[in-house]
């Protein structure tokens, strides 16, 4: 289920502007990989190339390879819609569909794929997904309601439930806690540690403590200056990156000297 991601010399463009340059990285399955770096360094942009969400922006394109267990996501004839069904994504701000009930939200992706799932199986899936997202106990009595009364943290866990209902191989999280309070953040972090048993998890975060707490591998991105492309400076085991990084810039960033 869980899959390995490898990119080689990946370049990411917005029209003519090169936003990310020559990223070569391997992301291990059943582990959490954190992307850290200052604002504008291209880590979110790079993340969005891993499920081909980058290209929904007009003029955006990607050069290079992203291999998901050896299969190139950017190969000829690969349908981005299929890629996104395998690689789930959680966004910066919780974005449940407001017109759907809690239950419908969890099933939203499934309805696209296997439109004829029997009701019993749907019920099972809703419960399983919400339990995996640690949300079941809180919402089990109001599955048919729109859930606009849920807190931000609950909304975000609802979005995670929606993503894992698809049984993705990889779960991408783009600053999933940046709009949440510390308690909700903790709940999401605990959840991530549970989810890594089954999924490859990649998280972009501005919060270095968070990266240190939850991730197994950390990758540091940086830019030389405004207008120049973001680069992967170094990646390695989180313990090492946060104690004895190889590159001076990484140490400066970790220790709060810039960024």
């Amino acid at each position: 289920m869980s899959k390995r991601i490898e990119t080689t010399d990946l370049n990411v463009y917005y029209s003519d502007f090169r936003a990310v340059e020559d990223v070569t990285i391997t992301i291990q399955p059943r582990a959490i990989t954190a992307f850290i770096g200052p604002s504008g360094c291209g880590k979110s942009t790079f993340l969005r190339t891993l499920n081909r969400m980058h290209e929904v922006i007009p003029g955006a394109r990607v050069e290079g390879e992203v291999l998901l267990d050896g299969e190139n996501l950017y190969g000829a004839g690969v349908d981005p819609v299929r890629v996104r069904r395998q690689v789930g994504m959680v966004f910066q701000r919780p974005n449940p569909f407001p017109t759907m009930s809690i239950r419908e939200n969890v099933l939203a992706g499934i309805k696209l794929n296997f439109s004829r799932m029997p009701k019993g199986e749907q019920d099972d899936l809703v419960e399983r997904s919400l339990r995996s997202a640690n949300l079941w106990e809180e919402v089990k009595n109001r599955l048919g309601l729109p859930g606009s009364g849920l807190s931000g943290g609950q909304q975000q866990r609802r979005c995670i439930a929606r993503a894992i209902a698809m049984a993705p191989a990889v779960l991408l999280m783009d600053e999933p806690c940046s709009a949440l309070d510390p308690i909700s953040t903790l709940a999401i972090e605990d959840l991530m540690s549970e989810l890594k048993e089954k999924y490859t998890i990649v998280i972009v975060t501005h919060n270095m403590q968070q990266a240190a707490r939850v991730s197994d591998t950390t990758a540091f991105f940086n830019i030389a200056g405004t207008g120049s492309p973001g680069r992967l400076i170094e990646s390695g085991p989180t313990d090492k990156i946060f104690s004895t990084p190889d590159v001076q810039a990484t140490e400066d960033y970790i220790s709060g000297r810039f960024g």
Binding site: V81, F91, N95, F97
Partner: peptide, 29 residues
């Protein structure tokens, strides 16, 4: 129609038309 909801639909593997049905029409109703 909120960009955030459109992206949510696309990230779930919706085609353009499915995205419109999921994220644009309900909002625009």
């Amino acid at each position: 129609a909120p960009r955030l909801h459109e992206e949510a639909a696309l990230a779930l593997g919706a085609t353009r038309w499915e995205m419109v049905k999921m994220a644009v029409f309900p909002f625009a109703r």
